[in-house]
């Protein structure tokens, strides 16, 4: 197949290279101005919000993780130039745009309930018992609008309220626990904690233990992997790194 040349991608690649590989600023062609927590910064165009903030001098110790949109650590809120809507996203996966106002939301304070799944009934009352604020949901749908994973958050909170564990578990399955829903919720619900409890109850009571897992646990208990594990434990750091880098990776679906 003939390779399609996209000049825009070249420009993005060039800008990224400039920002991250120490190329002199005079060689960067395109610049934008963004406002980080109320202060204007000139940064190379076409960076992610995370890279743009780092270019501007911010150093992240917490509030950053995989840098690939999976871990949910670098939650961000922003308004684009001339728009009133407050938008949300992952700083590592959202492109900075000229005139954007932004700030990082590294964490949404929330208490996680402590429970023993095996001692709870499989009933909606468990969710109300540990998170009674679920009943405060007014179905405004702000959480759904805030979700960077595009989940139907309000629908799963409502499913939690009425004890529909299957819908709760499936609708919340791709949650990365970034906390943006909880931050935006006018009813102060911590959606992702509720969903986690719901998924655990659904997994434990609703689905039961799958056959392949039972089989694998038996194998482990019989010592089938003991020798392989001993070998890995005995590796030097260098050997371990080499094995890790050279491992088989599942192909992209």
């Amino acid at each position: 197949m003939e390779e399609i040349k996209n000049p825009v991608m070249d420009i993005i690649a060039e800008a990224n290279r400039s920002a991250t590989s120490g190329i002199d600023a005079k060689d960067i062609k395109d610049w934008i101005t963004i406002s980080i927590m109320g202060r204007a910064y000139k940064v190379p165009a076409d960076l992610t919000i995370l890279a743009a903030m780092e270019y501007a001098g911010y150093k992240f110790v917490r509030g950053v993780g995989c840098r690939q949109g999976f871990c949910g650590a670098c939650a961000t809120v922003f308004r684009k130039k001339g728009e009133y809507k407050l938008q949300t996203g992952m700083a590592c996966g959202t492109r900075a745009e000229d005139g954007m106002h932004l700030a990082q939301i590294p964490f949404t304070p929330a208490e996680k309930a402590s429970y023993d799944l095996t001692k709870e009934p499989y009933s909606a009352s468990v969710l109300i018992k540990y998170y009674p604020e679920v009943a405060r949901c007014v179905s405004c749908n702000t959480c759904t609008k805030a979700c960077p994973q595009d989940l139907e958050v309000m629908d799963y909170v409502q499913a939690a309220l009425r004890g529909d564990f299957e819908l709760l578990a499936t609708d919340s399955f791709d949650c990365i626990q970034c906390g943006l829903c909880a931050l935006r919720c006018p009813s102060e619900i911590v959606q992702y904690h509720v969903a986690q409890l719901g998924r655990r109850l659904y997994g434990y009571y609703g689905l039961g233990v799958p056959e392949h897992l039972k089989k694998r646990v038996e194998e482990i208990e019989k010592g089938r992997y003991a020798k392989a594990l001993d070998t890995v434990i005995a590796f030097s750091n260098d050997e371990l790194r080499k094995q890790y880098v050279g491992r088989d990776i599942e192909p992209e679906q």
Binding site: S125, I128, K129, A135, R136
Partner: peptide, 21 residues
């Protein structure tokens, strides 16, 4: 609502909790 006894929360109907909230 966090001060409501757990045993009450376990039996109160959803409609009572939602309207009280």
């Amino acid at each position: 609502i966090r001060a409501i006894p757990k045993e009450e929360l376990e039996k109160l109907p959803q409609i009572a909790m939602v309207s009280a909230c």
